[in-house]
Every structure is written in C-alpha cells, then in structure tokens.
Amino acid sequence: MRVRNKPWAIELIPEHPELIVEHGQDLKGKWQTRFARKQPIFIEVGMGKGQFVINMAKKYPDYNFIGIEIQKTVVGIALKNALEFTLPNLQLLYADGADLTDYFDDGEISKVFLNFSDPWPKTRHEKRRLTFKSFLKVYKQILIDNGIIEFKTDNQGLFEYSLVSLNNYGMEFDNVWLDLHKSDENVENVETEYEHRFSVKGQPIYKLKAHFI
C-alpha cells in the first residue's frame, strides 16, 4: 500500500501515546502493560488502514491486538479510524514488521495475522515475502509453543508459494481455504480493506491457518 503524505495523519500520532507506540523496542517483553487486561496477544503484520485489526479488537474483547505498520501516514489513518471506538485491547505499533524480534520477546505472542501481503512475484525478491523461511523463523521465535499463523491473500501464486514454504518449514496446517467467501469459515470472517475490494469483484480469497510444531 502506497498513499500520499497526509500531514494531519502524521501530526495525529504524537497526540495519542495511549494508543500508538512509535518503534517500541522498550516494550519488548512488556506489552501486556499497554493493555487493560492481561490476555493473549495477537499481532497483524502490515495492518494498512486498520480495518481488520480494529474490527477484530471489537469482536474479540478477550484478546489483545497489536496492529503493525511501517508507513507513517498509513499509521496515522489507522489511528484516526481506531479513535472512533473505545478499545482497551488494541494498540498500534509504528515499526518495521521485518524486525519483530526487536519489539517482541520469545513466546510473547499467541497468533500472527498476515493479510494481503506484498506478493513480491519476482524470484530475486523471494526473501521479501512474509512467508519466506527467514520470516517463519522469526514468527516461531516470538510465538508461544504451537503458535498460530493465519494468512489471507487474493494472489494465487503467493498462496501456493506459502503452502510450500510453511510445509517445508515443518508447520502443521489446521485448514486451507481456496475460496474463503464461499466457505463456512466466512461466517466469522473479518475482512480487510483489500479483501472487501477484491471479493466484491468475485475474486477468490485464499486462506490458511497453520501452527508450529
């Protein structure tokens, strides 16, 4: 996602330290202190404008959620959207999702959401894909034992690549959906901005759920 610079969005960030964290290395191992209650923490890597992570926090108050985004303007937009609600189980982190071990301690996270990540289709860019083995190693480190990854995309090539990558890493699949919106899983599905845009056009949405063993 690329958006034009919006000064108001960037200026909004320092006004709400209760909801947004810039960088966050000092909170490594201490993220529970940012929430009203101590409960399992789920993170979304690349939250975009926040539609998914905000609605997940609304729907599941018994879990804590952290949305992570590297683009400052986009973070500001997500912050504006989050401020429309009172969500004591939500935090936003302005940081690079490629450096998760800088922000989270071993076993601090219970689930990782990867939604509509950049497919990086060229072979020479394989290492940038968020389901490449080096990223999987990081997720396993910050996740609890048997920690879960949920991955959604509209990109068939990236989905097929991810199935192979996770399988080769030794992960166990809980389920795989080749057309999410035509499955029973869609009953409880929370959409992202991109997902809604693609699904209304009739494009299939692919999803997998897997855990480390």
Rank of each mutant, 00 (worst) to 15 (best):
K127T: 11
N168R: 13
L178W: 11
S183D: 11
G147W: 07
F113Y: 04
T192Q: 00
R129K: 10
D62F: 13
Q91K: 07
M171A: 10
D106N: 09
N81G: 08
V176E: 03
E160S: 00
V187I: 12
L114N: 02
F52W: 12
Y60I: 14
F85K: 14
V74A: 09
K59R: 07
K127E: 11
D154Q: 02
D105Y: 13
V138T: 09
G107R: 09
I70S: 09
Q71M: 12
W177G: 04
D154S: 06
K133C: 00
S183H: 04
D99F: 09
K182I: 03
E172R: 09
T101I: 02
Y60R: 12
I142P: 01
E108Y: 07
L90H: 12
N81V: 07
L90R: 12
A57V: 01
V187E: 10
H181M: 11
K127W: 12
K127F: 14
E69W: 06
I70D: 02
G147R: 04
G97T: 03
L114M: 06
F173C: 10
Q156A: 10
N55Q: 14
N189P: 10
V164D: 13
D99A: 11
T131F: 14
N155L: 07
G76W: 00
E193D: 05
D118A: 15
F151A: 00
E84A: 15
N155H: 14
L178K: 09
L143N: 00
I149T: 01
K182Y: 06
K152M: 01
Y139E: 02
N89C: 07
N175L: 07
K80T: 08
L79D: 13
F116I: 12
I144Y: 03
N167P: 04
S183G: 04
D154G: 09
Q91P: 01
D184N: 14
L166W: 13
S110C: 01
K72H: 06
D105F: 14
F151I: 03
D184G: 12
T123Q: 13
D174S: 07
H181Q: 09
L180R: 07
A57Q: 05
V176W: 01
D105K: 08
V176F: 02
L87C: 05
G147Q: 03
N175A: 07
N155P: 09
E185F: 08
E84V: 13
S110W: 03
S110D: 05
E193F: 08
E84F: 15
V112F: 06
F113H: 02
M171D: 02
P121A: 10
I66C: 03
N146E: 07
L100T: 04
N167Q: 12
L180V: 08
L130P: 04
V75M: 11
L143P: 03
G157E: 07
